[in-house]
């Protein structure tokens, strides 16, 4: 009996992962797309139910409440959103997913801080990657959403010393991470590193024009997959690693296809406004 449940959970994960793969495949062709989406949703439900049965999950009440609240908000939002607002809706949802992945790392860091055991190196690296990718995805998606929704100007936002500031932040992240790898138990530094990641997400998307936002959202979608995968390494869960890697890789290919459809290269989409600051006035 004690072996039965864990085996069942792992097999459920295997089925769910297969459903994700078949679902993604079917989503790529018009005749089967709807069915593919449905299969992926079934896979997700299966994965969530299996996880609830994991032995380490001790308290259910609050988790079920959280799942219910999230489902309700998600369902209402999906009903209310206008058809024309779909790209920014996807961007918004994507940002929430990235935030969730980053929060998993922060929560796990906090949990490990509370225990007497030292934080192992591999867990530490996974958490830092998770916080970085998840953080950038969260704020980057929010800026993309705000641009498409017209909350902020859709034209590229540039300011003096933009590149040096970005480079400086990136260096700050690397230095902070390096420090944490040597001396892991330092919450303020960990939170500072998380803050830098959030800031980098904002600065990464600000200089990109509104017309290019769908490509950026696709790229951020790929990133949120990688963030989920990193979260999988944090809690050592194959389901998370597989699904995250699937989205990360397929999202990257899709981003490239979308660039090609616009006759642009990804590099020019991401960095064109850096080179000629202030010249381009073409808003989306």
């Amino acid at each position: 009996m004690s072996e039965f449940l864990p085996t069942g959970i792992q097999l459920s994960y295997l089925v769910a992962a297969s459903l994700f793969i078949v679902g993604l495949k079917k989503l790529g062709s018009p005749a089967t797309a709807r069915q593919g989406n449905f299969l992926a949703a079934v896979g997700m439900l299966l994965a969530v139910v299996a996880t609830l049965l994991e032995r380490q999950v001790l308290s259910y009440e609050m988790i079920l409440v959280g799942l219910a609240v999230g489902s309700l908000i998600g369902a209402i939002a999906a009903q209310k959103v206008a058809m024309t607002a779909m790209p920014q809706m996807v961007g918004l949802l994507n940002g929430l997913g990235g935030a969730a992945s980053a929060l998993v790392a922060v929560a796990e860091f906090w949990r490990l801080m509370g225990t007497s055991q030292a934080i192992p190196l591999d867990a530490n690296v996974s958490m830092l990657l998770d916080v970085f990718i998840g953080g950038v995805t969260f704020t980057g998606s929010m800026i993309a959403f705000a641009k498409l929704q017209g909350l902020i100007s859709g034209s590229p936002v540039t300011f003096p010393l933009q590149q040096p500031i970005n480079a400086l932040l990136l260096v700050g992240f690397v230095v902070g991470s390096g420090y944490l790898l040597v001396a892991p138990e330092n919450l303020p530094i960990f939170l500072a590193v998380a803050g830098v990641s959030l800031l980098l997400g904002v600065l990464f998307v600000l200089p990109i024009g509104g017309g290019d936002m769908p490509v950026v959202i696709s790229l951020l979608n790929s990133l949120s997959g990688l963030a989920a995968s990193a979260a999988g390494f944090v809690v050592m869960n194959n389901m998370l690693i597989i699904a995250g890697a699937l989205v990360g890789a397929s999202g990257l290919i899709l981003t490239q296809i979308m660039c090609k459809a616009m006759n642009r290269s990804l590099v020019s989409v991401l960095f064109s406004s850096f080179g000629k600051a202030g010249v381009s006035g073409g808003s989306g």
Partner: peptide, 27 residues
């Protein structure tokens, strides 16, 4: 199908919910 595919893949990346359940459930 670019946008629907992106959106479907985005829903799958919400798999992070599993990590969240594991962390919260550890209590």
């Amino acid at each position: 199908l670019h946008t629907p595919l992106m959106s479907g893949a985005n829903a799958i990346s919400g798999i992070a919910v599993i990590g969240a359940i594991l962390v919260a459930g550890a209590n």
